[in-house]
Design a protein around this nucleic acid. Structure first.
Lengths: 150, 150
DNA sequence: TTTTAAATCAGAATAAAATTCTTCAAATAT
DNA sequence: ATATTTGAAGAATTTTATTCTGATTTAAAA
C-alpha cells in the first residue's frame, strides 16, 4: 500500500479548497522546491487520492439556487424496480445527488432548481413519470450553513 | 446584467466536470480559437459564474468513506442558541455540509467518517459537546447512486 | 440600403507555468 | 563502513496561458 505523509496531506487539503495554485506557490507553502511538489501531486493523482479537478459554479447565477432534499420510497423492493429507478434518476438533471439509505425511505435525493415553481414542475413532470416511485417526501432548504464543496 | 450565451454554457458544463482541459482543447470542443475561449472563461470567472476550482479527493483513501445524514433539533429556537450551534458545527471537520431546513427538524447535516465506530465517536464526543442540540436522528448511506460533485 | 460603432474572432507574439532531467545529499540496508 | 535507495534542488526544456494586433461580423443608426 502506497504511503502518504504529512506534506502530502497538506497539499491535498490545500488543493481541495483551491486547485489553481501554481506548483511554485504550493512549494512555498510546504517549504519545498517545485519539482518534488510536482512529483508528489502526480503521485497523489496516479494513486487515486485526487480523483479529478472541477470548477464550482454559482447555482444562483445559473437559476439553480433553490435546494430540496427529497425522500423516496419505491413501489416494490425487487432488483428490476431498483435498477429502473437508478437508470431513470440518472437522466434527470435537477437531481444532483442520490443515495440509497437506511430508515423509512429508500433513497435520499438532493434536488437543485430555480424556485418553488420549478420544483413543482420537477415533481409533477419529472418524478411523476418515474414509474418505480411509490411515495415522496420533500424537505426544503431555507439556508446553506456549511458546504465544503460550495 | 451580464449576458451568457450557448457557448458559455457549454464551457461551464465542461469545466464543472473537468477543469483540467487546456484552453486549446476547450477551443476545439466549442469550435473557436484559443483567445476567445480564454476571454470567455475569464469573464465567467470575473462575473461570478465560476466561483472557484477545486480538487476532488477520494473519501475512501482518506478514511472518510462512511456517510451519514444527521437531522438535528435545537433545544430552543432563539437567535443565541442558533448562532452558537452554527459556530460550533463550523469547527467540526466530520460535518461536510449543513442546511437549515423545513419540517420536523431544524438542520440537516452530511457527515463523513471512516466507519460506524468513528461515527459513534463523532456523536458522543463531537455532537455530545454541542450544548445547543436537543435531539438527533441518523440516516445511514448504504451506497452513493449519483453525485455530480463526486 | 449604407454607414458607423461595438463585439468577437483568428493568429502571431510573449510571458508564465508545467514538466523533465541531472546532480547531490540524506537515510537505510548490507 | 560501504552500497543502495529515496527524495530534494536547480537548471533546461516543453507546454500552456496570456496578451496583442488586425480582420470580420453583427447590430444599430442614418
Amino acid at each position: 500500500m502506497e504511503q502518504i505523509d504529512e506534506i502530502d496531506l497538506r497539499l491535498l487539503n490545500i488543493l481541495h479548497d483551491n486547485s489553481k495554485y501554481t506548483v511554485k506557490e504550493l512549494a512555498k507553502m510546504v517549504n519545498l522546491s517545485a519539482s518534488p511538489v510536482f512529483e508528489r501531486i502526480k503521485r497523489l493523482e496516479n494513486n487515486g487520492y485526487i480523483k479529478k479537478y472541477i470548477a464550482l459554479l454559482d447555482p444562483e447565477k445559473l437559476n439553480r439556487g433553490f435546494i430540496v432534499f427529497c425522500n423516496i420510497k419505491l413501489k416494490q423492493h425487487d432488483r428490476n424496480i431498483g435498477n429502473q429507478f437508478v437508470s431513470d434518476i440518472m437522466k434527470i438533471e435537477e437531481i444532483v445527488e442520490c443515495y440509497n439509505i437506511s430508515g423509512d425511505y429508500d433513497f435520499l435525493m438532493k434536488v437543485s432548481v430555480k424556485d418553488m415553481k420549478h420544483y413543482q414542475d420537477f415533481v409533477f413532470n419529472k418524478l411523476g413519470s418515474v414509474e418505480s416511485i411509490g411515495s415522496t417526501q420533500s424537505t426544503f432548504v431555507m439556508s446553506e450553513i456549511k458546504n465544503l464543496y460550495g
